[in-house]
């Protein structure tokens, strides 16, 4: 066949695939908006988002506790994982001898492949009892262990591999020569890492963190297993919470006889999606600005 023709077909095909996949996101958003209409028609958005009374049988759908639950679990997970992930990836990329790296890298990649349910079980068997018997009493709380803290810990461990893998790659992509420049000026290794490598890697590291955040936000199974699932605004990390994802997964298809229930759940899915979109866009903007400033 003519080379030019092949070229034309290939590029058209790729364009088509690209258009199709970008249309998907619109299709999903439009579908969700369509389905959430009934509830939006009968309830004001501020009531849905800010009210704490969740009584579907009475027609009251306040998502506030679920939104707070989602945010808290995510924030806790990031608080636990960020410092550890950053230090680990810096160690692996900058300090670890080749042998240690070759040993640890696959282990971390392996963590990424473990199914969510397994993390959930591990949370129930280890994290929950630990919190119930030691951590909560230590801080003067009595708790079942099925709580925000457990959700945050399990989630933190689940986002580990992504953030570490991506940010380690980012660090290794920083040209060796600019480290040499810094060392040749008499900087110590740590000064070089802090002022040069970290700085050059910053946009990529932020991308890694956002990736982690998006996963944390949307992760359902493991969190649902340990977080307690009580529709109430938690007042401490030892209290149960009920993230949006868990709400959807627990109830969709079950409670469909209750009027407006499915519409309410799809609205919460829409909220989740919009928040994640918002995060990614915000991250892009931050990234662009940083790149313009330092690169």
């Amino acid at each position: 066949m003519d080379r030019k023709l092949k070229e034309a077909i290939a590029s058209k095909l790729m364009l088509l695939a690209t258009v199709f996949s970008s249309l998907l996101i619109f299709a999903v958003v439009i579908g969700l908006i369509q389905k959430s209409r009934p509830i939006l028609a009968t309830h004001s958005l501020s009531e849905l988002l800010l009210s704490s009374s969740w009584f579907p049988l009475r027609g009251e759908f306040g998502f506030y506790p679920f939104i707070i639950g989602t945010i808290w679990v995510t924030v806790l997970a990031m608080l636990f994982s960020l410092p550890l992930c950053l230090l680990t990836s810096i160690y692996l990329a900058e300090y670890a001898p080749a042998k240690i790296r070759a040993f640890i890298k696959p282990l971390i990649d392996l963590l990424a492949g473990i199914p969510s349910v397994v993390y959930g079980l591990w949370g129930i068997l280890i994290v929950v009892p630990l919190i119930k018997d030691y951590v909560a009493p230590f801080f003067g709380y009595s708790a079942t262990g099925y709580c925000l803290l457990a959700g945050g810990i399990v989630l933190a461990i689940m986002v580990f591999p992504i953030i570490i893998a991506v940010s380690e790659e980012v660090f290794r992509a920083v040209p060796h020569e600019i480290r040499e420049v810094s060392l040749a000026l008499g900087a110590t290794k740590w000064q070089t890492v802090k002022h040069v490598a970290l700085r050059a890697a910053l946009p990529g590291v932020i991308a890694a963190i956002v990736l982690g955040f998006s996963r944390a936000f949307g992760e359902t199974m493991a969190v649902m297993m340990v977080v307690g699932n009580v529709a109430r605004v938690p007042s401490s990390v030892f209290e149960p919470a009920y993230p949006l994802t868990a709400l959807i997964a627990n109830n969709y298809g079950e409670m469909m006889s209750v009027p407006l229930y499915d519409s309410a759940l799809l609205l919460s899915a829409l909220i989740l999606l919009l928040v994640i979109l918002f995060f990614s866009i915000a991250a892009r903007i931050v990234l662009l600005r940083i790149e313009r400033r330092v690169m």
Binding site: I178, V181, R199
Partner: peptide, 11 residues
């Protein structure tokens, strides 16, 4: 001090 083959400005 050292000056390299290609210029490598720090970021």
């Amino acid at each position: 001090g050292m000056l390299g083959q290609k210029p490598y400005p720090l970021p």
